[in-house]
């Protein structure tokens, strides 16, 4: 295995050289009709800012490293936060080339305000999960057990994780007294209330429960009480580098992006 690796790499190299030479030849022979050939996209360059839901803050940077490797000279800067807050700041003129939201409802106002170039495309979905302190000392096994916790961390209702958590609680018929709930601005901060802070439990996404393994214990929420949120992604109309922005959207939707999202715990878009 170890011995054959360099040889394989060399072979790939030579294949690449042949392909490049072929491309050059193609380019020479078909001058004037290059625009009609969509199979060979120009390597995307420059830099873009991707505003993304904080639940994507673990998986997107990893994907971006792969993307930047494929597109030499491209850089992606992220602006993670609550989708609700991001949508508000984009409407107010915050610079973003791509917006990846944790809910269709946070993308919709941008679409109707004409701030989205083309269509917004669903690329993943996420469900809710309870997290507790490691070992689950309070014995929380369902949403109804959350009343046993002294402090439950929830996202603010303007964030998709907050809206879906409220929906799930009302589906389960659970009412948490106000004095028991600490509100955090986005899902990562909500999870941190349990992993770093002293909150006994939090309602976060399945993906948070997956990434916090060891720092928190996940307690699945049954399907009939759970609420699934769909993640749309779109290129912004104000983008100065739409080709790179589109390339990133395509990459996220493509096999590499979907595989990374799947291993982070996301489900495919419904």
């Amino acid at each position: 295995m170890n011995i054959s690796e360099p040889r394989m790499r060399r072979r790939r190299w030579s294949l690449g050289a042949v392909a490049a030479a072929g491309l050059l030849l193609c380019g020479c022979s078909t001058v004037g009709s290059t625009s009609s050939s969509p199979t060979v996209p120009a390597p995307a360059r420059g830099s873009i800012t991707v505003a993304a839901a904080s639940s994507l803050s673990k998986v997107f940077p990893v994907l971006a490293r792969g993307f930047e490797k494929v597109n030499h000279g491209a850089t992606i800067t992220f602006d993670f936060g609550s989708s609700g807050t991001l949508a508000t700041s984009i409407s107010a003129g915050a610079p973003a080339d791509v917006f990846a939201s944790a809910a269709l409802s946070s993308m919709a106002p941008l679409v109707s305000a004409g701030l989205v170039a083309g269509r917004s495309i669903p690329f993943a979905s996420n469900a809710l999960e309870i997290i507790t302190k490691p070992g689950n000392p309070l014995g929380i096994h369902a949403l109804s057990d959350l009343v046993k916790a002294k402090v439950v961390a929830l996202c603010v209702v303007t964030a998709p994780c907050g809206a879906t958590a409220q929906a799930a609680l009302s589906k389960a018929g659970v009412h948490l007294p106000e004095g028991q709930v600490t509100v955090a601005p986005d899902v990562d901060t909500t999870a941190a209330a349990v992993t770093t802070g002293d909150a006994d439990a939090a309602i976060v996404y399945v993906t948070n429960a997956r990434s916090e393994t060891g720092h928190a214990q996940g307690v699945p929420i049954p399907k009939k009480e759970n609420v699934v949120t769909t993640y749309p992604i779109a290129v912004m109309a104000a983008s100065q580098n739409k080709s790179l922005a589109k390339a990133w959207v395509t990459y996220v939707q493509g096999p590499i992006g979907q595989a990374a999202l799947h291993s982070a715990g996301f489900s495919p878009a419904a």
Binding site: A153, V156, E178, G179, V183, G197
Partner: peptide
């Protein structure tokens, strides 16, 4: 960061302003 944002218990006026701004 330390005391969270619980209405009536730890939600002081600046925290209430921040929360209100999003709504």
């Amino acid at each position: 960061t330390f005391a969270g944002d619980i209405a009536g218990r730890t939600q002081t006026l600046p925290l209430a302003v921040y929360l209100a701004l999003q709504r």
